[in-house]
Simulated assay, not measured.
Amino acid sequence: MLEPTKKPPAEAVSEARFAGPADKIRELARVAHTLGLTEVSGTVPWRELFPEFQGKENWAVALRGARGKEGLTQKALAALTGIPQSHISSMENGRMPIGRQRAMRLAEVLKIDYRILL
């Protein structure tokens, strides 16, 4: 029998947010601290949440995300932009720079600002 390829995390970690009067929030923070809980900042770098994008260019990740948001395959995007599907694949994988003219064609179809892709 095959084993699962991903192992579950050793310990599950959860976060919670609360809204209410400032004095009650301070009281809640004191109680949470006595329970051994720690306070975290409100933001986390996106690359920490998506380690599969480590080492990828920002524009490559943006292109793949925008294409996914529009529900397009690489083949469909190629048909709409006139850019070969193999080039779109290379751009999404960070192997080929997009360039200004291609960025403008892609951005028009993907309904985003072309500068995100540069």
Rank of each mutant, 00 (worst) to 15 (best):
G36M: 09
G65I: 07
G99D: 05
R100H: 07
E52T: 12
G71R: 07
L2V: 13
A107L: 03
E108A: 14
G42E: 10
A32S: 09
Y114R: 03
I116M: 13
G94L: 08
I112V: 14
V13C: 03
P51N: 05
G55H: 06
A32C: 13
L49E: 10
L118K: 06
S90I: 05
A62G: 04
S90T: 10
M1S: 12
V44N: 04
P84H: 15
V31F: 14
E11K: 15
E108P: 02
E15A: 12
E92Q: 04
G42W: 09
K6F: 14
Q54V: 14
W46I: 08
E57Y: 12
A19M: 08
V13I: 15
L35K: 14
Q74M: 11
H33W: 10
K24Q: 09
R102T: 06
E27L: 14
P21M: 07
A10E: 14
L106F: 00
P84T: 06
I98L: 06
D113R: 07
T5L: 14
L77D: 02
L106C: 02
I112F: 00
L77W: 07
A19S: 14
L77E: 00
V13R: 12
V31R: 09
A19Q: 11
S90Y: 10
V40G: 01
K56G: 00
G82I: 07
L72K: 02
S86K: 08
G94C: 04
